[in-house]
Design a protein around this nucleic acid. Structure first.
Length: 348
DNA sequence: AATTCGGGGAC
DNA sequence: GTCCCAGAATT
C-alpha cells in the first residue's frame, strides 16, 4: 500500500475557497465556546443539521452554561431531547457536564486523552471540540470526511477502523497554514453538500484530482459498508385510564429509549408475554384504538393499541417507576415517538 | 469486530 | 420502500 501523503497546498487552497463560497450558516458556526460546540456535536451525531437546529436553540435557552446543565436533572434533559433519538446521548451530556464541573472546574479539557474520559465523547467529538473551539490541529473524522477522503485517495482498506485511521492520518497532513477549525469544517461541509452519497462531480473542487472520479468508481466508496434487513416485531400497547389521568411507566437508565416515559406494553418475543397481564395486575378491555408502526435502528415494530384496567396495585420489575399523568404532566416528560402516536390514537 | 443504540430527511 | 446522517458504548 502507498504510504500516507499530504494533501498538497494548492488543493487545500481550492477547498478553503470553495468553503468560503458555499458554507452553510448554523447557530453554532463561528462560536468558540467549547460548551456550545460540545452540545452541537453531540446533537449532530447521526442526525442531520436541519433536525438539530431547533433542539440546539431550545437547549441553549434552557441551559446557557455548563453549570446550569450540571445542576439540572434527567427529567428536564429528557423532556428537551424528546424526538431527537439516541437518548443515551442526553443522559451522557448531563453526566459529562457534572464530570467537567467536578474534575475540570467547568472548563472543557484541552487534550484528546482528557476529553475522551468524558461520557459520550469519542474520537470524533474529541477532535471536533479541540479543533473548532480551541483551533488545535486535531482531525475530526465523521461519516462525511470518511466518504470524501476515501474517494479522493481511493482508500482500499476494507475494515472501517483501518479506513478511519487512514483518513485521520491524511486530514492531519492537510492543515498547512490554514486554521484547523476551518479545515476540519471544510472537509465535513464538502461531504455534506458536494461529495454526497450520489454526487454530481462536475462542480467539485477536487474533480480533477479525485482518484475515485478518474476511475469512474465514485459510487463504490467508502468501502466496507454492510446492509442489514431489519427484523419485524409485534407488540401491544395498553391504555390504562383513571379519571382524567393515564398510567405511564418509566424505562430504565440504560438500553433502548433510556429514561423515557411510555405506556405499558409487551412484545411478542418477550421472555413471558403470556403472563405479562397477570404479573402487572392488568385486565384487557374490549376497546381497541388501532395499530401504530415504527422503525427503530435495528428492528421494526408494529403495535396494537388496546384499553385495559388495573385490577390491583401496579407492580413491575421491568420499569423503574410509574405515574398517573394528567395531560399537563404528560407534556412535561420525554416520550418515544411510537407512544406519542399511540396516545394520539387513543384520544387522550 | 460486531451490535446496540431513534428519528427523520432525501430520494 | 432504501440509504444515511458532524458516532459512542458495549460486548
Amino acid at each position: 500500500m502507498p504510504g500516507t501523503s499530504a494533501i498538497d497546498h494548492r488543493a487545500m487552497d481550492h477547498l478553503m475557497r470553495w468553503f468560503d463560497m458555499h458554507q452553510r450558516r448554523m447557530p453554532w458556526r463561528g462560536e468558540s465556546d467549547p460548551y456550545r460546540i460540545w452540545i452541537s456535536e453531540v446533537m449532530l451525531q447521526q442526525t442531520q443539521v436541519a433536525t438539530v437546529v431547533p433542539y440546539y436553540q431550545k437547549w441553549m435557552r434552557r441551559f446557557p452554561t455548563i453549570h446550569s446543565l450540571a445542576e439540572s436533572n434527567t427529567e428536564s434533559v429528557m423532556e428537551l431531547w424528546q424526538g431527537l433519538g439516541y437518548y443515551s446521548r442526553a443522559g451522557n451530556l448531563l453526566l459529562g457536564a457534572r464530570y467537567i464541573c467536578d474534575q475540570h472546574q467547568g472548563h472543557f479539557p484541552q487534550t484528546r486523552q482528557e476529553a475522551l474520559r468524558i461520557p459520550g465523547v469519542g474520537e470524533y467529538i474529541a477532535g471536533a471540540v479541540l479543533s473548532i473551539a480551541f483551533n488545535y490541529p486535531e482531525p475530526a473524522v465523521d461519516g462525511n470526511v470518511i466518504r470524501v477522503l476515501s474517494r479522493l485517495r481511493a482508500i482500499s482498506e476494507s475494515s472501517p477502523s483501518r479506513i478511519r485511521r487512514a483518513v485521520a492520518d491524511i486530514v492531519g497532513l492537510s492543515y498547512w497554514e490554514f486554521e484547523p477549525r476551518w479545515v476540519n469544517q471544510a472537509w465535513m461541509e464538502l461531504g455534506a453538500l458536494q461529495c454526497i452519497p450520489h454526487p454530481a462531480c462536475t462542480p467539485c473542487p477536487f474533480a480533477t484530482v479525485c482518484m475515485a472520479f478518474s476511475t469512474g468508481k465514485v459510487a463504490e466508496y467508502p468501502l466496507g459498508k454492510k446492509k442489514k434487513t431489519l427484523p419485524l416485531k409485534r407488540g401491544i400497547i395498553y391504555i390504562v385510564r383513571r379519571d382524567n389521568r393515564i398510567l405511564m411507566v418509566k424505562r430504565p437508565a440504560a438500553g433502548l429509549l433510556a429514561n423515557l416515559w411510555e405506556l405499558p406494553n409487551v412484545f411478542d418475543d418477550d421472555q413471558d408475554p403470556s403472563s405479562f397481564l397477570e404479573r402487572h395486575n392488568l385486565t384487557p378491555l374490549s376497546v381497541s384504538y388501532g395499530t401504530v408502526r415504527h422503525a427503530y435502528s435495528h428492528f421494526k415494530l408494529t403495535c396494537e393499541v388496546r384499553a385495559a384496567e388495573l385490577s390491583g396495585p401496579w407492580q413491575s420489575d421491568r420499569w423503574v417507576d410509574h405515574r398517573w399523568m394528567s395531560n399537563t404532566m404528560l407534556a412535561a416528560v420525554g416520550k418515544p415517538k411510537l407512544h406519542i402516536m399511540a396516545l394520539r390514537k387513543s384520544g387522550f
